[in-house]
């Protein structure tokens, strides 16, 4: 639930950025629709928590600082955020949810997760389609700047995912029915998704993703 609240803000902000980025018509509206869906599904997830006997009440952190990437052109700045959100975070989500869904038995929760998964697929594809369409159009300077952003984005992805995939979490019997999986297994899948799916595709688009991944831990504060 709390993630949805935060992500809703992220998509609202992305929508504003896309309104100005010149990447195509209606893209900002699409991102704002993502935001509404985030909130609606946060409510659904909360309903599941309540149905299972929990209390779906949580504080929401302050709105995150959405980066507009000053110093970049509008389109390159937008592509940075689309890449981070769609090509990285949401593609990992497609993989993780896909695995959980695969192991869930038929039933209402699987239907809910199916809907969630469908939405994630649309999200990820939104990012990939735009990055694939516009990356080839970047100037050499824009491309270099986007390439320089890649290790930052990849390291951020890794930090975020590992923080949400507890290494020691090993759910007990019946956990598959709830869509739960081992945190350790999920980490393995996370790395496989990055290394076998995301990096090769970004490389194919002319973005130096493998070298960025290799150098992500070498970053130092500016």
């Amino acid at each position: 639930m709390t993630n949805e609240a935060q992500s809703s803000y992220v998509f609202e902000a992305l929508g504003e950025q896309l309104d100005e980025a010149g990447l195509g018509a209606n893209l900002g509206a699409a991102a704002r629709a993502f935001a509404r869906e985030e909130l609606r599904h946060g409510e659904l997830c909360g309903a599941v928590v309540e149905a299972l006997g929990g209390s779906a009440v949580a504080g929401v952190e302050d709105q995150p600082r959405f980066p507009m990437h000053p110093g970049s052109t509008r389109r390159e700045a937008a592509l940075r955020n689309l890449l981070s959100i769609g090509c990285l975070s949401e593609t990992v989500a497609v993989s993780l949810i896909g695995a959980e869904r695969e192991e869930m038995p038929e039933g209402p929760l699987r239907e809910l997760l199916t809907q969630i998964w469908a939405d994630e697929i649309g999200h990820a594809r939104f990012g990939w389609t735009l990055v694939a369409a516009h990356a080839p159009l970047l100037t050499a300077e824009e491309r270099a700047q986007l390439a320089a952003y890649l290790p930052v984005a990849l390291r951020h992805l890794e930090r975020h995912e590992l923080a949400h995939l507890p290494d020691a979490h090993a759910p007990g019997a019946g956990s598959n029915e709830l869509g739960l999986c081992s945190g350790r297994d999920a980490r393995v899948l996370f790395y496989a998704t990055v290394e076998r799916v995301i990096l090769p595709r970004l490389d194919a688009l002319g973005l130096p993703a493998r070298s960025a991944w290799a150098s992500r831990h070498a970053l130092r504060a500016a």
Binding site: N3, H41, E90, E120, V152
Partner: peptide, 16 residues
């Protein structure tokens, strides 16, 4: 058509 229902909603992208 687009959506974002997800317990794994994307975090805010990082700044440079």
């Amino acid at each position: 058509g687009n959506a974002g229902c997800t317990p794994w909603g994307p975090p805010c992208p990082p700044a440079m």
